[in-house]
Write a protein that binds this DNA or RNA. Structure first.
Lengths: 220, 220
DNA sequence: CGGCCAGTTGACGTCTTTCAACTTTGGTGG
DNA sequence: CCACCAAAGTTGAAAGACGTCAACTGGCCG
């Protein structure tokens, strides 16, 4: 938690102050934190496990907006403007989150201005990410989108490593992140396996060469 | 300008105060206000004409993020967190914009808190819109996306009217907004013309029945 | 009136989805 | 500990949507 971007640059005393205002919530696998279109009440941070943010289409098809691991903030926008949550949040596995209600947050902003700056920066980063993904969806073929989806799932900051193991993510999940079907995901992964770029297993993708994947994501 | 969401709810005196801090800029058709990835300096509002926000892919393909008419705010996120502009802004026709540099804005926020609330709300709305469009791109076929693109171009608030005339937008533009090609746009518009939903002309789309279009956008 | 830009339309190819059948994996309860 | 079941993954065949290329038309401005 200490290294969450939410608390970045805060002196220990202020960080404690902020944390003391949080509520904690524990979630079983699959438990829903909030539904899309509900009134937005709080900003959340994952401390343990993983939370999956999804948008549902009118036809009932799901799209995965983001998969949040420990330290990651979500529903930041909602907390700022207090409109409706733009997605549903549910635990992808047994998880723990901290949450700050809007009122508490407003007050903390006054006492700890750096906190507000952090929230704005996080919200900005998310808005940028959505813009990029929107462009990707509009212009890039499935394999490249899938490569990017995998790269986004790789735990950050693994100096020197050129491989990565992604677990607890089904091909259905990957399909919803890349905006395609599980069939196409399976085919593409099979191809990559044939050229030795990845190995796959039930709920598991082992990226053998992040570099290779990056090339697929960016290149030609 | 008075009815821009930026100034919503501000007493006349405060609105004047805010406006007095703005710089104005005039743009010829095609003139670029700022480029994607430049350091973000200012929040902008269109007062006249139209500004086109685009993202460029690595391969040089363009995607239109938004087309802003009078009163509309853009680059709000950038002004808050001061990172890079996430898109390029250029005048789609001779235009005029007001702009507030980050420092001026911060100061105004202190004097006019409602202004900050407005900016946060606007940024939130844009973030939500991008989320929705991302989902659309991931799940919806071209005709529906095109219908939505047209509906977004219809001047707001025309009580009672069931038709709308959209001018100064080429099919190439529509293609970039809907994430497709001008060929597909032409074909789809031809179909709609055949059933009497629209009529088209050079740089012109006359929507005969907004209701019909809405059905296409939402339905089945 | 000529050239240019916007738009149209057909033919074709390809990527992706859809549907169906089948295999593999891992967990659970007997 | 094993057998079994459900969930996850694989793969082929076929259809469909969409993009690409090329040729053609038509309106508009100088």
């Amino acid at each position: 938690m200490a290294q969450s971007p939410l608390l970045e640059g805060l002196p220990a005393a202020e960080a404690r102050r902020v944390l003391s205002e949080a509520r904690e919530r524990q979630l079983d696998k699959g438990e829903v934190l909030f539904h899309q279109d509900e009134a937005a009440e709080a900003l959340h941070v994952v401390t343990e496990g993983r939370v999956r943010l999804t948008q549902l289409t009118a036809e009932g098809q799901e799209v995965v907006v983001r998969l949040c691991g420990p330290g990651e903030v979500f529903a930041g926008i909602a907390a700022l403007d207090g409109k409706a949550y733009p997605f549903t949040a549910a635990a992808a596995e047994p998880s723990r989150v901290l949450l700050w209600r809007r009122a508490a947050l407003q007050e903390l902003f006054r006492a700890v201005p750096r906190l507000q700056a952090n929230v704005l920066e996080i919200v900005g980063a998310h808005a940028r990410e959505m813009l990029d993904r929107f462009r990707e969806m509009a212009t890039e073929p499935v394999p490249r989108r899938l490569a990017r989806a995998l790269l986004r799932l790789v735990p950050r900051e693994r100096p020197g490593q050129d491989d990565a193991l992604i677990v607890g993510v089904t091909q259905q999940d990957l399909a919803e992140m890349a905006g395609t079907t599980l069939y196409t995901v399976s085919r593409v992964l099979s191809e990559w396996e044939a050229i030795g770029a990845v190995t796959t297993g039930r709920g598991r993708v082992h990226v053998r060469s992040l570099g290779r994947l990056q090339e697929i994501a960016e290149a030609r």
